[in-house]
Design a protein around this nucleic acid. Structure first.
Lengths: 168, 168
DNA sequence: TAGCTGATGTTGACGTGACAGCAAAGTGGT
DNA sequence: ACCACTTTGCTGTCACGTCAACATCAGCTA
């Protein structure tokens, strides 16, 4: 075991600043969702469902799209079904499967929260960056992601949902 | 209500990349903690305690330092005390208060996980950045933080714990 | 066709985090 | 001393996420 190589002050400053930003931004966006009675998890599933043909997907496919664990999907769907956001039905061609349907209520909840979410992402994040900074950050993020992908401790889950307009 | 202003493709790309990086990095670091039997919450409290005079703090002061809710502190301390990482004692000068002591076991757990944590932060994050990128990211993060601080949906909690060496 | 293997979804346990409410104890003004 | 108000810490409740265990079904192979 080699001696621990501590962070120098630039590294420390960067890590603290990034980490604080990451947490606070997450929390602020989560609060924005909460103000509309949703969580970011709700939003993620509702978004994927709303873009699926006929607004429905097999739980399996839903899970693959958002890269969640099967049990996470199951728990989340149970809670969302109780709130009337989605509905589970038996899958026709595979007796093991479950088809998840977006309900009217679910679609309305999604449409209600969407504008505020995009506003918040802009206001708190994107509007604070110049185009050059956006490109630089994208480059950094992709580099870090690649590194995590080949690490023993990564990867795990989760793609975020595109907030871009479907027609763009 | 004005029409929703969707994200253009640069904005969308940046938001997706940043968001993915943020989640994956968090998860990878959490897994690294887990491999040593700790969580990032454990680590945060243990770190603060280990730097306090006599390795102890009033729960109130601990809460202020990490900017957590009182109930979150209480729940977390209960679980950590059950695992022997800390010990709660009555506060001498304030009958309402509780003094939290770092146990030997707690100190050992912290020292066991610390090198791996710093390694992971380096490997997955800092080593992927040039010095210029570190400075640029620090600037961006501070700007975003300032914006969040004055937003209705921010702020909330949490400062991350310095990973810099105490003597640096 | 019988049987093995893998895929699918559910459940329970546990740690975690946010919120609201509560009780005990300090604080300051009268 | 008495009062209202605040501070401190704890609890219960709920939502969330991970892990392991489980039951069921599909698909392949002997």
């Amino acid at each position: 075991m080699t001696e621990t190589r501590w962070l120098d002050s630039r590294e420390n400053r960067t890590w603290l600043a990034y980490n604080d930003m990451s947490r606070h931004l997450n929390q602020a966006l989560e609060r924005q969702f909460a103000s509309a009675g949703l969580s970011s998890s709700d939003f993620e599933l509702l978004t994927v469902l709303s873009r699926a043909p006929d607004q429905r997907l097999r739980a399996r496919d839903l899970g693959r799209l958002v890269r969640w664990d099967r049990s996470r999907i199951s728990h989340q769907l149970r809670r969302m079904e109780q709130r009337g956001l989605v509905q589970r039905k038996d899958c026709a061609d595979d007796a093991r499967g479950v088809t998840v349907h977006l309900t009217d209520e679910g679609r309305e909840a999604l449409e209600a929260v969407q504008p505020g979410h995009i506003d918040a992402v802009r206001r708190l994040f994107l509007d604070q960056l110049t185009p050059d900074e956006m490109d630089a950050l994208t480059t950094i993020a992709n580099r870090v992601m690649s590194r995590i992908a080949e690490d023993p401790f990564g990867p795990g889950t989760s793609i975020y949902i595109a907030t871009i307009h479907p027609d763009s």
